[in-house]
Structures are given as C-alpha cells and as structure tokens.
Simulated assay, not measured.
Amino acid sequence: MNITVLAVGTKMPQWVDQAVAEYSKRFGRDIQFRLKEIKPEKRGSGVNAAQGMAAEEERIMAAIPPQSFLIVLDERGKAPTSMELADWLSKWQQQGENLCFVIGGADGMTEELKAKARLLMRLSSLTLPHGMVRVMLTEQLYRAQSILHNHPYHRE
C-alpha cells in the first residue's frame, strides 16, 4: 500500500521533519509512505485567501497520485479512534487502495477540494499547527499499522 501525504507548506522546523522521518521509517515493507510538500500561495499584493486557496488547490490536485483514495483533513470531518483508524486501514489494504491525505494551508482548503475527497477526517477538535498535524498523522498511521500487526507499540 502507498500512503502519500500532501501538506501545504514548506520549511517546517527540524523537529517536525525528524519526527515524520522517524515514524515513516517504521512502516516496514507493507506501506510505502511519502510526504510531499505543496508550495503555499503568497498572500498580499492583490491575492486574497480565496485566490490563494484556489492556487493551492491546483497544486494539490496535480500532486495527487492517480487512483488514490483521497482523504482531506478537515475540522468538520470524522474523528476516528486509533482502533477505528486501524480498522479503516485494514479495509483499505484489503481493497487494494492507495491513500492520499491532504493537509491544507493556513487559510484551509476550497469547498471544491473537500467535495472531491472520499473522506473528510479530523485528527482533533483543537486547532493545531501544521507541523504538528504532519507528525500526528504519521504517528497515528504508524500506530494503526502496529495495531494490525499486534505490535506492542499500542496499548489499551
């Protein structure tokens, strides 16, 4: 299974890159994990939030791997538990799905992009920094995989 995370934003703090790298290398052979940064649109000089999100949407759409199950992170999305995410991951693996998660920019994402998603997912009801979302998503995907393999990483 391939998992791609498209994240609007570049130049994250070193701790973000290190944490994502650490969790992504733990997936093993079952999951090919890839994080791809999407250049954010500069605001100001006549570019408002709506125009910026539209430009970012074009970049996101161009970066989505073909035939991916598109999951957009959104504050109004479904908020799975770790066990539920593991169940979803198992189902997607059995169906041969390749996943693409999208983390939007500072102003969010267009409604059109959200409508193209097969799932809107929420990591938390709290507002989180974008770098933290990258780390949390990668860790939770690793945790879901470890649950499916009865690895002792996850405890209940």
Rank of each mutant, 00 (worst) to 15 (best):
127 T>N: 05
54 A>C: 06
93 Q>T: 14
98 N>V: 02
143 R>P: 07
50 A>F: 05
17 D>T: 13
116 K>M: 11
45 S>Y: 03
126 L>Q: 09
134 R>V: 01
5 V>K: 00
103 I>S: 02
151 H>I: 01
97 E>K: 13
12 M>S: 03
58 E>D: 12
5 V>W: 04
101 F>W: 05
87 D>Q: 15
19 A>D: 08
78 K>P: 03
145 Q>H: 13
152 P>Q: 08
28 G>S: 09
147 I>M: 07
17 D>P: 02
42 K>M: 07
125 S>N: 15
83 M>T: 13
26 R>A: 03
130 H>K: 09
104 G>D: 01
143 R>V: 00
94 Q>R: 14
129 P>N: 11
137 L>I: 00
23 Y>W: 10
94 Q>Y: 10
7 A>P: 02
7 A>F: 05
53 M>H: 04
75 E>R: 13
58 E>L: 14
76 R>A: 14
141 L>V: 01
9 G>T: 01
133 V>I: 14
148 L>Y: 00
13 P>M: 03
144 A>S: 08
18 Q>Y: 12
145 Q>I: 02
76 R>C: 13
27 F>H: 10
133 V>T: 06
131 G>T: 02
53 M>D: 03
108 G>D: 06
95 Q>P: 05
97 E>Y: 11
20 V>F: 00
99 L>A: 01
46 G>D: 12
23 Y>M: 00
86 A>R: 02
9 G>C: 06
73 L>Y: 04
121 M>L: 15
128 L>G: 03
26 R>Y: 10
127 T>Y: 08
90 S>R: 15
98 N>W: 02
92 W>A: 05
124 S>A: 07
53 M>C: 09
128 L>D: 00
53 M>W: 11
62 A>T: 13
6 L>R: 00
11 K>S: 12
149 H>V: 09
83 M>A: 15
27 F>C: 05
79 A>V: 09
70 L>T: 07
61 M>V: 15
56 E>L: 08
122 R>C: 10
57 E>C: 04
74 D>Q: 14
13 P>Y: 04
90 S>A: 13
96 G>C: 10
72 V>I: 14
41 E>K: 14
86 A>G: 08
98 N>M: 04
86 A>W: 03
34 R>N: 10
2 N>D: 10
39 K>I: 12
116 K>S: 10
140 Q>I: 03
138 T>G: 01
67 Q>G: 13
80 P>M: 00
88 W>S: 13
88 W>K: 12
57 E>L: 03
6 L>A: 03
34 R>H: 13
148 L>R: 05
124 S>R: 06
92 W>M: 11
32 Q>R: 11
75 E>D: 15
86 A>E: 04
7 A>L: 01
54 A>W: 04
